[in-house]
Write a protein that binds this DNA or RNA. Structure first.
Lengths: 217, 217, 217, 217
DNA sequence: TATGAATGAGACTTCATTCAT
DNA sequence: TATGAATGAAGTCTCATTCAT
C-alpha cells in the first residue's frame, strides 16, 4: 500500500508491480522490515531476518539500502509520511474529532503501525541521523495538533480553560502512551475500547460548563 | 537512592572474610546500568559498557549477576519498586493531586528515571522473562490509579462523566507519553512546564459542571 | 574420504553467482576439524583453532556450520558413514576376516581416524543431540557385526561355543579398546603389530576342536 | 556412601588418615571431582562445579590443589592405585579368572569407576604432565596382565597358540572397550551380562585343542 | 584454614558490511 | 540486478586463577 514509493518513478497502477523497479523493491523491503520490527522488536531486526522475511538474501538488502541506517531511516520516513497524510486529512476538516477518527482508522487498519512506530521511537535517540528525523517530524505533528485545537477553541468546540499547546501535549502524550502500551496488551485495545477512549478524550476536551445558556454552535 | 555504598565503611568486626556487601555492589552496578541505558540506549548497553561505567571488568558484572537478563530484570524491579513506593505515598492521601506531586518529585529528582523506564519498556516485549514482569507490575499500577480516581469520583473531586477506568487509562497514557518524549526533548520538559502539564491534567479531570446544576445520578 | 575438493576445479558454466561449492568447503572444514581434534583433543578444538587450521576466519566456519554442534555432528556422521561403508564392504563377503582386513585398511589408511572417533565418543554422552547419533549408529554397527558372526558360525568358520552376540561384543570391545589406546602409544600400533593382533583375534574366534573330530554342523 | 561429611568433626577411626587434615579434605574433593566427571563429563567439570558438589567454595579447591591439573592428576593417581591394588590381589592368585573376578567386583562396586577412567583417559593425551602418568601406569598394568597370562600358559590353563603379550593386549582392549561403552548404555552392562562376557572371555582364552590332537606349528 | 571478590582470557555466536561474480 | 562467500568486530558467558582478609 503505497509505502511512499508510489510516485517515485513514473509509477502508474502498480499493484502487481511491474518488476525491476528499484522503488518497488525498496518498498517491499521496507514492508518486510516493518513486519520484523513489529513482531520481533527492533533489537532482533537484523538484516538477515529482514531479508528472510522479504524472501531474498542479505546482499539484496544492502544492495537497495547502503546501510542499515538508511533502511531504518527510510522506514521511519515512510511511517511519518503516512502519519502526516492522516493528519492532513483530518486537519482539512478542522475538526478535532475527525482527526481522532483518522487516527483510529490508521492504527486499526494496520495493527503493526503502532508497534513499529514505538520501536523506531525507542531507538531513535541513539541512532545518529535518525533522531533528527524524529524530532523534526514529531514537532511538525505536534504543531498541527495545536493548530487544530486552537482553531477549535476559537469556534468554541474545545474547552478554552487550558491553552491549546498544553492540550495538544496532553493529547499527543495520550496517543503516544497508547502506542507504547498497545504492543504489550493488544487484547486490551479492541476497536471498541479504542473508540471508548477516543470518545472519553473528546469529552475531556469539550467545553466544560454548559452555562445552561445557549451554546450557539 | 541509598545504594548504601557510602555508609558501609563502619562495618564492624568483619571476622574472617571480606564480605564486600554484595547488595551494595549490586546496587552500584544497577546504577551504572541505568546510567548507560539512559544515556546510550538499551541497545548499546552491553555488559562491557556497564562495567566500564562502574569502573570494573565485565567479569565482575557477571559475578554479581548471573545473566544480562538477571541484571536487567533486577534493574526493572528496582525501578518499579520506586514507582510503586511513590504511588503508595500518593495513594495514602487518596488525593489524585498528591499522586501527581509525587510523580513530579520522582521524575524531576532523577532525570534518568523516565529514559530508563522507556528503554526498558521498549525492549520488554521481546525479552523473555522480562515481559512478564512489566505486565504484572504495570497492571498493578494502573489498578492503583483507577482506585484513586474512583475514590475521587465518589468524593466529588473528580469528574464522573467518564468511567474511572477510562480516566485512568487516559492519565496513564499521558504519563507514558511524556516518558516517551522526555528523552527526545528534555529541554521541553522543564519543571515549570511539567507543572503546567500536571495542572492542566488536574483541570481536565476536575468536575465539570458547576455544582449549581442539578446533577442527577 | 572423497571430500571432493580436488575434483571441483572443472566446474562448468557457473552462470551468475560464485557458488563455491558449499559441500566441498564443508568437507574441507570437517577435515580441518578432524585434524585439530585428533591432534589437540576435542577439548581444545575451538572454532578458532579449526578456522586457523582451515586457513580462514572463525566467521567462515560459522557461515558453513550454524553451530559448533552442527559441525561436530556432521563430522561424526561422516566418520560413521566411512565406518559403515567399510563394514558393508566386508559384510558383502560374509567373511569375518575380510571385515578385519577392511578395518585395518581404514584405520591404517587414515591415522587420524581412531583418535578422532575416540574423542568424539568420549564427549558424546554429554553433548546433547550428539549422544543420540552415536547410540543409533553404534548399535547398527554392533548388529552388523553380530550378523556376520552368526553367519560364520553357521558355516562353521567361527567357533560356536560362544553366542554370536557375546562374541560380537568381545570383538567390538577389542576394537574400541585399541581405538582408545592408539592415540597414547601410536608407535605400539605399527601395521605389523596390528596385523598380529588381527590374526590373533581370528585365531581366538576360530573353531576350537581339531578338524579331525567330526563336527556335524 | 560415607563421604564422611557427617562426622566431619569428631571423626574417630578414619581408616588410616589423621583427622581434619589436608589429606582427608583432598580425598573428599577428589571424590566430588570423580562424581562430577562421571556424571557431567570431563568437559563440564569446572572447579566451580566440583566445589559445589563438595559443598565448599572454589577457593577451597584451589587451596587444596594448586591447579586444576594437580586435582585431576591426583584423581587419576588414586584411580590407578585402586586399579593396581585390584590387580595385585588377583595376581597373587596367579589365576586369570580371579583377576577377572576382582575386576568385576571393582567396577560393579563403584558404578562411577569406569566412566571416570574413561573421561580421564580421553583427556589424558592433551593434558601435559598427565599423559605421562597414564602411560606409565597403563604400561605397568598391561605388563602385570601379560605376566599372569604367561604364567597361565605355562600351567596349561591358558591357550598357548597365541603369545601372552598379544593375548594380554586383546584382553586389555576388551576391558577398555567395555569401559568406553559402559557410560553410553549402562543398562546393557547388567551384572549378569558382565558375567557372561567374562565367562566368554575365559572361554576364549582357554586351551583349545584336546591335548590329544597334535598341534603342528 | 577458607572465603568470596575480581580478573582476564577465551569460547561461541550474531551481525553489518564488503566484494567478486 | 542480485548472490553468497567471507570478514572482523562486538556481545554474552564461563572459567581457572589470584589475592586480601
Amino acid at each position: 500500500m503505497s509505502d511512499g514509493s508510489d510516485g517515485k518513478a513514473e509509477r502508474v497502477v502498480r499493484r502487481g508491480r511491474p518488476t525491476g523497479d528499484r522503488a518497488a523493491k525498496r518498498a517491499e523491503l521496507l514492508k518486510a522490515a516493518a513486519s520484523v520490527i513489529a513482531q520481533e522488536g527492533y533489537a532482533n531486526a537484523s538484516l538477515r531476518r529482514v531479508a528472510q522475511r522479504a524472501g531474498c538474501t542479505t546482499g539484496a538488502v544492502t544492495y537497495y539500502f547502503a546501510n542499515k541506517e538508511e533502511l531504518v531511516t527510510a522506514l521511519a520516513e515512510s511511517r511519518f509520511d503516512a502519519y502526516e497524510a492522516m493528519l492532513e486529512a483530518g486537519r482539512a476538516t478542522a475538526d478535532i474529532r475527525a482527526v481522532f477518527e483518522e487516527w483510529l482508522t490508521l492504527i486499526t487498519g494496520d495493527p503493526e503501525f503502532l508497534p513499529v512506530m514505538f520501536q523506531l521511537l525507542a531507538h531513535a535517540r541513539h541512532e545518529p541521523a535518525f533522531a533528527a528525523l524524529i524530532e523534526r517530524r514529531y514537532a511538525r505533528y505536534r504543531q498541527a495538533n495545536t493548530d487544530i485545537l486552537a482553531c477549535g477553541q476559537e469556534q468554541g468546540v474545545i474547552r478554552d480553560d487550558i491553552p491549546a499547546d498544553l492540550l495538544s501535549d496532553q493529547l499527543s502524550a495520550m496517543g503516544d502512551g497508547w502506542m507504547m502500551m498497545y504492543p504489550f496488551e493488544p487484547e486490551r485495545f479492541t476497536p471498541e475500547r479504542l473508540r471508548s477512549l477516543v470518545d472519553a478524550a473528546v469529552t475531556l476536551i469539550s467545553p466544560v460548563s454548559p452555562p445552561a445558556g445557549s451554546k450557539p454552535k
